[in-house]
Amino acid sequence: MNLTPQQRIELHGFNNLTKSLSFNMYDICYTRTKEEREAYLEYIDEQYSAERLTTILNHVSDIIGAHVLNIASQDFEPQGASVTLLVSEGPVENASNESFEESPGPLPESVVMQLDKSHITVHTYPEYHPDEGISTFRADIDVSTCGEISPLKALHYLIRSFDTDIMIMDYRVRGFTRDKNGHKLFIDHEISSIQNYIPDELIDLFDMIDVNVYQEHIFHTKCKLRNFDLNNYLFGYTKEKLNQEEIKEITESLKMEMDEIFYGKNII
Results as ranks from 00 to 15, higher is better:
97 N>M: 11
167 M>Q: 08
122 V>A: 06
172 R>G: 12
10 E>A: 09
149 I>L: 13
171 Y>R: 00
126 P>C: 03
5 P>R: 07
223 C>Y: 03
128 Y>T: 05
96 S>L: 06
99 S>N: 15
116 D>I: 07
245 E>M: 12
71 I>P: 03
187 I>D: 09
136 T>W: 01
106 P>T: 14
207 D>Y: 13
224 K>D: 09
67 H>S: 10
247 I>G: 04
70 N>G: 10
101 E>G: 05
69 L>F: 09
177 T>H: 04
124 T>A: 05
221 T>Y: 05
165 D>N: 10
87 V>G: 02
207 D>Q: 11
27 D>L: 03
53 L>I: 07
240 E>R: 10
258 M>N: 02
108 P>A: 02
179 D>T: 05
184 K>T: 13
218 I>D: 10
227 N>I: 09
50 A>Q: 00
148 E>T: 13
256 M>P: 05
228 F>K: 07
103 S>M: 10
179 D>G: 06
198 I>A: 02
172 R>C: 12
66 A>I: 02
85 L>H: 01
223 C>N: 06
70 N>V: 11
110 S>T: 15
86 L>M: 11
44 I>F: 02
119 H>E: 15
177 T>M: 02
9 I>H: 04
101 E>K: 11
161 S>D: 03
31 T>H: 03
258 M>P: 03
64 I>K: 03
114 Q>H: 15
67 H>W: 12
180 K>F: 13
87 V>I: 11
61 S>E: 01
244 Q>M: 09
85 L>P: 00
107 L>N: 07
70 N>Q: 10
164 T>K: 08
16 N>P: 05
184 K>F: 14
53 L>F: 04
198 I>Q: 00
96 S>F: 06
65 G>E: 01
245 E>N: 14
109 E>K: 15
184 K>L: 13
14 F>N: 11
129 H>Y: 09
248 K>N: 10
256 M>N: 13
253 S>F: 07
190 E>C: 09
136 T>F: 00
87 V>D: 01
160 R>T: 14
243 N>M: 08
49 S>G: 10
157 Y>L: 09
117 K>L: 14
30 Y>G: 00
253 S>V: 10
182 G>T: 06
88 S>Y: 09
166 I>M: 02
148 E>S: 14
57 L>H: 00
162 F>M: 04
50 A>M: 06
26 Y>S: 04
72 A>L: 09
211 V>S: 15
218 I>E: 14
121 T>F: 05
181 N>R: 12
34 K>F: 11
249 E>N: 13
56 I>P: 00
131 D>S: 13
255 K>A: 02
241 K>P: 11
18 T>V: 15
88 S>C: 12
70 N>M: 11
33 T>Y: 01
221 T>V: 11
28 I>G: 02
28 I>E: 03
3 L>V: 06
127 E>H: 14
155 L>M: 06
239 K>Q: 14
260 E>Y: 06
43 Y>E: 12
60 V>W: 00
157 Y>T: 08
132 E>K: 10
34 K>Y: 14
36 E>P: 06
189 H>I: 08
253 S>N: 11
245 E>Y: 15
104 P>W: 04
151 P>Q: 06
168 I>E: 01
18 T>Y: 08
240 E>Q: 14
13 G>M: 03
95 A>P: 06
185 L>N: 02
200 D>V: 12
104 P>T: 07
106 P>K: 11
151 P>S: 04
